[in-house]
Every structure is written in structure tokens, then in C-alpha cells.
């Protein structure tokens, strides 16, 4: 006998000019099926108008972030049976402009990162563009930031953060974590100036260590840790 799980999916169409509603679908579930598989099943068999963004289906592209039963998750990284619920509520992420159904506009996240220059910067521009030597690092130097390179920019932490929800100018867990990632990288030459980028009202000081970012991060990046370490630098 096939087991059915009821999907309550948030549906929003901007052209209707109305608030979103929850539509329900009965989805037959097998062991190994992810929430994303469920949504694809709905799209293929029950309702082709459902909009959902995904690409890799293996938790590496960061496209399919959404709220499942009130908690931010990657749909492709969440087993339906693992949720142990007969009802699954699927909503788009918070704190991003909503485009349609489950699809959010990730621009705020990318713009904040861009403004903070989260990439490796060498003082010597020529060298930056055409490196002539290798930049070796010890195991220890690597360990200082490696964890933070695992970020796939899915935006789940940004959606979970209570401060971003209420104070949108806050730079947010992901961008602050990225700043620390480059600050801690021995190859980067911006140094303490990176800390000065975030030493402002909208920066590290708005973090109150609610830990929700780290609680939802699917890659174990632990942005909360990075922000505390960054703040320690700002307090120096």
C-alpha cells in the first residue's frame, strides 16, 4: 500500500494582487523521497502551475531553500518520511521579496555580499589578476576559515534570522560570515579594514546570538560562530 502525505503548499501569484493561499495536494511517498521530489511530483502530476526553483537536487547549488513545517530547509536535502508528519507545510523563505509560489528573489543577499567585497583581495592588482606564485597555506591557516567556505548561498540563514526580519538593513548572517571568512584567510590582504566594514549599527552589533542561522544551515557553516569571532575582532 502506498503511503500518502498531505502537502500544504503556499501559492502566491503576483498578478492576482491578492495574498497567498495554501493549496493542499496528496503525494504518494516512498522511502528516499525528498520534499523536492514531492514538489516535482505535484508539478508533474497534480498542478503544473506550481513554481519552484531547483537545480542540482543534491544540496550543492542552494536553489531550493524554503520553509518546511516552519523551519528553513533545503527541499532536496529533506526526507519526507524523516519529517514524521502526515501534513507538510511548505512555504517560501522569509526576508526575501516573494516572486511567485515558493520562489524568492535572492538579490538582497547577493547585494549585501557584494557591498562587503567578499572575495580575495591582494594589494598588488597585477598579481591579483595574473598570479606569478602559489599561495601556500598551512593546515592550521586553512582550518581558520575552511568551514565558512562550505556556504552555498542558499539564504536559509538569512531567512531564519529574527533581526533581518525586523530590521532589513542588517547585513545578515551570511554576509557577516563571509566577511569573517576572508578576514581569517591568510592570503587576503585587506586585513582589519574588513572589520571596519561591519563595525556599524547595521553590522555585527545587530547580532543578538539567537543562533537560528546556525540551527538551519544545511552545510554546517555555523554563521553565528563566525559573527561572534568577527565581533571579537571589532571589540579589539
Amino acid at each position: 500500500m502506498t503511503e500518502y502525505v498531505k502537502f500544504l503548499v503556499y501559492r502566491y501569484r503576483p498578478e492576482d494582487g491578492k495574498k497567498g493561499v495554501y493549496a493542499d495536494y496528496d503525494v504518494p511517498v516512498k522511502k528516499g523521497m525528498t520534499v523536492l521530489d514531492g514538489l516535482i511530483y505535484i508539478k508533474e502530476n497534480l498542478d503544473p502551475t506550481l513554481s519552484v526553483r531547483f537545480s542540482c537536487r543534491m544540496a550543492i547549488c542552494g536553489s531550493c531553500g524554503m520553509r518546511v513545517n516552519g523551519l528553513e530547509m533545503l527541499a532536496c536535502h529533506t526526507q519526507i518520511l524523516g519529517l514524521r508528519r502526515k501534513h507538510i507545510i511548505v512555504e517560501p523563505m522569509r526576508n526575501f521579496p516573494l516572486l511567485r509560489d515558493l520562489v524568492t528573489d535572492m538579490t538582497p543577499l547577493f547585494m549585501k555580499q557584494k557591498a562587503l567585497k567578499t572575495w580575495l583581495i591582494r594589494r598588488d592588482e597585477l598579481e591579483q589578476e595574473n598570479p606569478t606564485i602559489q599561495y601556500l597555506q598551512s593546515e592550521e591557516e586553512l582550518g581558520k576559515y575552511l568551514q565558512f567556505t562550505y556556504c552555498i548561498q542558499c539564504g536559509l540563514c538569512y531567512s531564519a534570522c529574527p533581526v533581518v526580519s525586523t530590521f532589513p538593513a542588517f547585513l545578515g548572517p551570511q554576509s557577516l560570515m563571509k566577511v569573517y571568512r576572508y578576514f581569517a584567510d591568510s592570503r587576503d590582504e585587506v586585513g582589519r579594514e574588513r572589520v571596519s566594514f561591519v563595525d556599524k549599527f547595521e553590522g555585527v552589533w545587530r547580532c543578538h546570538f539567537a543562533g537560528s542561522c546556525s540551527a538551519v544551515c544545511p552545510k554546517g557553516v555555523d554563521p553565528a560562530l563566525a559573527i561572534q569571532l568577527l565581533r571579537r575582532e571589532a571589540l579589539k
Partner: peptide
């Protein structure tokens, strides 16, 4: 208050 209304 700033975090409640969303601006300073």
C-alpha cells in the same frame, strides 16, 4: 524600537 520598526 529600531529593530521593531525597522529603521533608526
Amino acid at each position: 524600537i529600531a529593530e521593531l520598526v525597522g529603521f533608526r
